[in-house]
Computed example of a mutant assay.
Amino acid sequence: MSGADRRDEIRAHLESTRAQLEATNAKIEARAGRNLFFAIASGLIFGAVFLASLFLIKQVFVLLVAIIVSIALVELASAFRVAGRRVPRIGVVLGGLVVVAGAYFWHAEGMLIGLFAGSAIITVWRLVEGLMPRWEMPPRTLVRDVFSGLFSLVYVAFLASFTVLLVAKENGEWWVLSLVAIVVSVDVGAYAAGVTLGKHKMTPRISPNKTWEGFAGAAVASAAVGVVVSIFALDQPWWVGIVLGVVVLLTATGGDLTESLIKRNLGVKDMSSWIPGHGGFLDRLDSILPSAVGVYGVALILGVVS
C-alpha cells in the first residue's frame, strides 16, 4: 500500500469515527435536550471559577453571586418582555444587588430589608418609565409589570442570597460546596439514568425530557453524595447527608420544573444562549436557587447558622 493510499485510509477512518461521534451526540442531545460536549466543557470552566472564588476569598464569591444574579435577572426580565410584560432591567438589577448586599453586610435581617428596598426600587422605576413618552404603555399593564418584577427579585436575588448567608458563617464555604455538589449529583444522576433507562415520562406537559427513571437515578446519586459531603466536608453524622440528599432532590427537581413552567408560559426555550450547552445562567440556577433555601434550613435546624 502506498503512502497516499494509507493517508486516504486514515482520513476515511477519522471521518467515519467523527460521524459516529456526531450521531451519538445528536441522539443524546435529542433525548436529554442539551449538547453534551459543550455542557461538560462549560460546566468545568464555571466549576473552576466557583471553587476558586469560594475557597480563596469569600468576598470574591459574594461578588460572583452578585454578577450572576444580575445576569440572571436581565435574562428573566428579557423573557418577560417576550411575553409583553415590561420588567425594567436596570431597576430589577439594582434591586437584586441591594438584596445581595443586605445579605452580605447585615445577614438575614439585611436580606429582608434589602428585599423591601429592592421592591420599592422596581416599583418606582416602572412608574417613572410609564411617565416617559417613549416608554409609555397602557395603564392596565402597570400592575402586571410590577408584580413580574417583584417575582423576579424574589425568585432570583432573594433565593440566591441564601448562599451568601451560608458562606458568611464559619466553615460556610463547605456548606455552599456541599449544596452545589448535591445539586450537581441530582442533575448528573437524572441525566445518566434518564438517557440510559428513561421510559416513563414524569411531567410531559412541563418538561418532556424528565422521566421517573431519571428521578430515581437522581435520588440514589443525591443520597450517596450527601453522605460523603456530610462526613468528609461538613463533619456531620451520615444521616445528615441523607436528609440533605432528600431535601435537595425535592428542591432541585421542583426548581427545574418551575423554571420549565415559567419558560413554557412565557414562550421561550432558554433564558439565553450565553452558556454553551446550558442555555442561560438562570437555566443553570433553577435547581440551585430553591436548594439554597433547603440547605440553609437544614443548617439552621442543626444550629450551624442562626
Results as ranks from 00 to 15, higher is better:
E173H: 10
E173Y: 09
W174Y: 14
W174G: 06
W174R: 04
W174I: 04
W174V: 05
W174M: 13
W175C: 02
V176L: 08
L177K: 11
S178T: 12
L179F: 12
L179V: 08
L179W: 11
V180F: 07
V180H: 01
I182D: 05
I182R: 00
V183K: 02
V183I: 15
V184Q: 14
V184K: 14
S185M: 14
V186E: 06
V186A: 15
V186W: 10
D187E: 15
D187G: 05
D187W: 07
D187S: 11
D187C: 09
D187K: 13
V188E: 08
V188F: 07
G189W: 05
G189Q: 08
G189C: 14
G189I: 09
A190K: 05
Y191A: 03
Y191R: 01
A192I: 15
A192V: 15
A193T: 13
A193W: 10
G194Y: 00
V195T: 12
T196F: 14
L197D: 00
G198L: 02
G198Q: 04
G198V: 04
K199F: 01
K199P: 05
H200F: 07
M202L: 15
M202T: 08
M202Y: 14
M202G: 01
T203F: 14
T203E: 11
T203I: 13
T203D: 13
P204I: 12
P204W: 10
P204N: 11
R205H: 14
I206K: 02
S207H: 11
S207Q: 04
K210N: 09
K210Y: 10
K210M: 06
T211M: 03
T211F: 00
T211V: 06
E213M: 02
E213Y: 01
E213W: 00
G214W: 00
G214H: 03
G214S: 06
F215P: 01
G217T: 07
G217N: 10
G217H: 04
G217I: 11
G217Y: 03
A218K: 01
A219P: 05
A219W: 03
V220C: 04
V220H: 01
A221Y: 03
A221F: 13
A221Q: 07
S222H: 04
A223S: 13
A224V: 15
A224H: 08
A224S: 12
V225R: 06
V225W: 03
V225Q: 06
G226I: 02
G226M: 04
G226N: 00
G226Y: 06
V228W: 00
V228N: 04
V228D: 02
V229I: 02
V229N: 04
V229H: 05
S230W: 08
I231L: 14
I231S: 05
I231G: 02
I231C: 02
F232Q: 12
A233V: 09
L234Q: 04
L234Y: 09
L234T: 00
